[in-house]
Design a protein around this nucleic acid. Structure first.
Lengths: 173, 173
DNA sequence: CCAAAATTCATACTTTGGTATGAAGGATTT
DNA sequence: AAATCCTTCATACCAAAGTATGAATTTTGG
């Protein structure tokens, strides 16, 4: 198996280079300003009512902690760890992996008939022409005709090569 | 090229499942507690000196904003983007999928020699006896001898069946 | 070192595989 | 109806694969 992992590591300066970050900072500024205004309101109300500096401090701390957490998350959102995994895949998958069935399109594309395909499969199972003939209730001559046509269509000269090529093309398993 | 991108998307609950996050929250708790204590000190000093509630509020806001930003960044640091790139790769012919190494044990177990195995591989690639002979710089007679021995050891009578059996046994790819 | 195993090669023979060609019947399409 | 494709089969021939046997050389393991 072969795999690589990339950890780009965005620096803070790289981060600042992005123009859209300026907009983001502006949003934080507005947020903080809004918090400051509401702070003023809360401040006077609380002071007028009972001069509870402790409660005021708690509310203030809560508000700015929440604001800070939100800002912090926004600021660090783009600090993402990017991992690229290289994994194996078969070229031109033509067998439907879901159903396990053969892709009819490739068979058609290669001009291989259904009967020829049947014979190709039996061939790949290691059967001789005689055995294939017996299984399909046809003569050896018929099997030979089919195999020859298969070889032409797969551009090979031997059954072993035909099986190999069909496997590589994912025409057969 | 064929590629897929996975975006895991850690939910907050998934996030909480991690045991080490509990430690992190504990650290934040301590931080906030420390901020609260220093708050008490600052509170009294400022109030005693000039009762400046505005300055006090500003300092308080600053402290908790910073604390919040720090916490927020910590909390959102683990956002990852995992990218899996699927690349074409032809599996090596003689590899055991579990160990990733040549399955010498199976070969030995079957009593197949290294040379015989070499020929079995070339056979599975669709080569004729003549082609194998040419590749290995030996005579066709030698190849025939080897192939016959392979067939005996794999208990088959044809090269196609030998290849099939070797593939089923995971002796070759 | 010696025995066993592995590798090499040959000769003769049988079997199987593959090519070429032709042909006939059926199904489908135009 | 004609053309085309698929499937079937046959005959003949050549090429390749596989078996059997024997033998020489090299490599390997005890």
């Amino acid at each position: 198996m072969y795999s690589r992992v990339f950890l780009p590591g965005f620096s803070f300066m790289q981060y600042l280079r992005h123009a859209y970050m300026i907009k983001r900072f502006a949003i934080y500024g507005i947020l903080i300003a809004a918090a400051a205004i509401s702070l003023q309101l809360i401040q006077y109300k609380i002071l007028i009512i009972n001069h509870s500096i402790e409660l005021y401090s708690g509310v203030l701390a809560l508000i700015f902690t929440i604001t800070g957490i939100y800002s912090g998350q926004r600021l660090s959102r783009k600090k993402e760890v990017v991992i690229e995994k290289l994994v194996y895949a078969t070229p031109e998958p033509v067998i439907n992996t879901q159903t396990g069935e053969v892709d009819e399109q490739l068979r058609e594309k290669l001009g291989i008939s259904k009967r020829e395909f049947e014979i190709l499969e039996l061939m790949s199972h290691g059967h001789s022409n005689q055995e294939i003939a017996d299984k399909l209730f046809v003569s050896v001559s018929t099997v030979k005709t089919h195999t020859s046509n298969i070889f032409l269509k797969l551009d090979v000269r031997r059954r072993t090569a035909a099986v190999k090529k069909a496997q590589d093309l994912n025409l057969i398993a």
